[in-house]
Design a binder for these strands. Structure first.
Lengths: 338, 338
DNA sequence: AATAAAAATGTAAACGTTTTCATTAAAATA
DNA sequence: TATTTTAATGAAAACGTTTACATTTTTATT
């Protein structure tokens, strides 16, 4: 591997290392003549400035770390793709922090910014992996940071979110509009903000329609497919079966549909299913899944842009960016059977 | 953010910075007494050793970069999850290089290892983004590196692969066993090794069965869903329609099934569909997709392990690890209609 | 108690850049 | 042509660690 350093280039082109550095970082400061000479040497040797030397001096890593529970998830994958793309544009590299829901790992990735290995952090879990001191303003204690998807309970940090409660409400309202009154909910993982909000939306919609909330119709899931299957199996055992099911994620909705098919129910003739997310496979299911779309691309892009702003040293006035969701009606929901 | 450095800790605990460093890196070299004292200071201040100082000295970044065409893809996502997990175990962080099929980006990520920002690289594209000199042995010119999924045309680099040709052959053989003789193929992106191999397998199986290869039945795709839809539409227009379709990816198979449904074909009664990959959604489709399974988890794990070996300074004898595929028969394939 | 061996610690150099400040060369102005 | 201004370059310090080597302290051996 290349052991050629800035001094080699300096020697090779008969200038000082300072000039080499300038040629690479601030070409306008160096004469055309020497510039070409240096660049030639760089090309010939394949010289790449050592990042640590540079970073040590500048105190900037050029990295950004993103902390996510599971990158396999289509929602997260979609978001991270946009992040990566936007980061690249801004000249940053992204360090992947797949936490697999382990707090230890979350901490580990947060430490990367403490240790200077990353200049900023994107957090998609509801925990703030930094300890704050009471007396000081929050902003001064935190690195460039933005939070998304699972809202951290702190008003002072930057966030990009969708209105999960309104989303949940819209989903249920759609079912109500179709005449359903016995509507089940399959929740996401316990105590996650997104799930709590969607549940609040579910309850609000029912309450507004003067429908009593039936605890038996609310099942706990974890956003993953199998939990959708299991939830559906539980619901089917009920004496008063729901005629519609609102799953808090598309993956669970897909699981639910598979369970229904397993037991020969027709969708939506017997039971309607609505999901949340609008992952790409939603419209590829049979029947095509009705769902609430999250603008994944936008979320990722906005997250990164908001981070880049901070990285530039700015503290944008607006702390939270709300992005719109959208009800996408397809084939998995239909009128209540009579 | 923390501006506390090793010297602060040294001062705080009344030792030299060398001892602090040792306490953190080689605790066994320092007496129990001072150790606790130093650790206390570290804890109190929340000191995190600056990575650049350390890396500059040790010439190790503790990072690994993975270069992939598209992280949104379920296949890649599955692999990278395993990579991340394995990397974490070995104490490495992973830098995400989503190239989005742009050569410029590939190069960019490869430069990260040249610049010392990463100690090793995992490459899932068929190009080697390093220039080699003829006269020297390849191994000496390359950083720790392993290649997977899309095979790079070079015998000297470490690889973990599945036998795509045999996989293609197995898929077609399964269809032949069901009595099909008019079998279409929907290829992946032009000139990618994986697709070329699977095509070779397809042709071999047909030739062995004494079936002439019909070019009209071979359609070019790009592994993505829409190309599967389009390919199927083309096939349906043919005077002699195939009775079975082998799609070189599950995504395309899913697209193909959607197209078939769109035009009221029954699967598998009218046309059988087989995919490749066995992504998690394969068994959630209706009908459940028959496919060739790639052991994603294994691929990722082996890649990282092979890389870690090299990172340790070893050059394992065995250059390529072959992993087994598996035919997973589900519901999307059936006997030929008569 | 004297010596040798081992353990603990400190000193200082080194890692490869960037950038401030000083200096020199070139261009513009008088 | 002499002077001022601007542009181009160089010298050297600084970034924060780790570690080879030197030194001191402790423990073991005689």
């Amino acid at each position: 591997m290349s052991k050629v350093g800035i001094k080699d280039i300096a020697a090779r082109s008969g200038v000082s290392s300072a000039t080499v550095s300038r040629t690479l970082r601030n070409p306008e400061l160096v004469s055309k003549d020497t510039r070409t000479r240096v660049l030639k040497a760089v090309k010939e040797t394949g010289y790449k400035p050592n990042r640590f030397g540079a970073s040590l001096r500048t105190q900037k890593s050029g990295n950004v770390v993103v902390v996510m529970p599971d990158i396999t998830n289509q929602v997260n994958a979609g978001i991270i793709r946009a992040i990566e793309s936007e980061a690249h544009k801004a000249g940053y590299s992204v360090l992947l922090g797949d936490t697999q829901n382990q707090e230890e790992r979350e901490q580990h990735y947060a430490d990367m910014v403490s240790s200077g290995q990353a200049d900023g952090i994107l957090i998609f879990t509801p925990n703030l992996p930094f300890t704050l001191q009471e007396n000081k303003p929050v902003t001064e204690q935190l690195p460039p940071l933005v939070n998304s998807c699972e809202e951290i309970d702190n008003e002072d940090i930057y966030k990009v979110l969708i209105d999960n409660k309104a989303g949940g409400r819209a989903a249920v309202q759609h079912l109500l509009d179709l005449g359903h009154t016995c509507i089940a909910a399959v929740m996401g993982p316990k105590d996650t903000p997104s799930t709590l909000e969607r549940l609040a939306g579910y309850k609000q919609a029912l309450t507004e329609a003067n429908i009593e909330i039936n605890k038996n119709l609310i099942i706990r899931g974890d956003y993953r497919t199998v939990s959708g299957i299991e939830a559906m199996e539980k619901l089917l055992r009920l004496r008063h079966r729901p005629t519609a099911v609102f799953c808090f994620s598309d993956d669970m909705a897909i699981g639910a549909m598979n369970a229904l098919r397993e037991y020969d129910y027709r969708i939506p003739e017997d039971i309607s299913v609505i999901g949340f997310d609008d992952i790409s496979y939603a419209e590829l299911m049979y029947p095509k899944l009705t769902t609430i779309r999250q603008p994944l691309e936008d979320i990722g892009r906005n997250c990164m842009q908001l981070l880049v702003e901070q990285l530039k040293g700015n503290r944008p006035e607006q702390k939270v960016i709300k992005l719109p969701f959208e009800l996408v009606v397809r084939q998995s929901t239909g009128p209540v059977p009579r």
